Simulated assay, not measured.
Amino acid sequence: MDTLKVRDAKDVEEVVRAAIANEQPLEIIGHGSKRSIGHAMATNAVLDLSALNAVTSYEPNELIVTLQAGAPLADVLALIDAKNQQFAFEPMDTAPLLGTPALGTIGGMIAAGLAGPRRIRAGGARDHLLGAHAVSGFGDSFKTGGKVVKNVTGYDLCKLLAGSWGTLSVMTEVTLKVMPKPEAERTLLLRGLDDAAANKAMTAALGSPYDVSAAAHLPKSTFRTKTEGLGDLASDGESLTMLRLEGITSSAAHRAGSLRDLLAPFGAAALIEDAPSAALWAMIRDVLPFAAGGALGAWPVWRI
Rank of each mutant, 00 (worst) to 15 (best):
G166M: 12
G294F: 00
A88N: 01
A205E: 03
E246A: 12
I80W: 06
L97S: 03
E238K: 07
R121E: 08
P117S: 07
A9Q: 10
A196E: 12
N53D: 15
K83P: 00
V55D: 09
M283E: 06
A134P: 12
A253S: 12
G113L: 13
P72T: 07
V301C: 11
H254E: 10
T227S: 00
V287I: 10
W299L: 13
A298D: 15
P25R: 10
D232W: 00
V76M: 01
W302S: 04
A215M: 00
G137W: 11
G207Q: 06
T167E: 09
A184C: 10
A201C: 07
K220V: 07
A74G: 01
T94R: 00
D127S: 09
G229F: 00
D261M: 04
A111D: 08
D274L: 03
S213L: 03
N151D: 07
G124M: 09
R186V: 13
G123A: 08
G192F: 09
R126V: 04
S50I: 06
V135Q: 14
D140R: 14
P180K: 08
V15W: 03
A71Q: 06
A134R: 01
R285G: 04
L190S: 11
N44R: 15
Y58G: 01
L230R: 00
L160F: 14
L245N: 07
D194R: 13
A40K: 14
R224W: 04
T153G: 00
E185I: 12
R285Y: 08
F142D: 10
K177C: 07
I106G: 00
A275L: 02
F138A: 15
G207C: 11
N53V: 14
L218R: 04
K143H: 06
V170E: 11
A298W: 14
A125M: 01
S221T: 15
A253V: 14
L188E: 08
E27H: 10
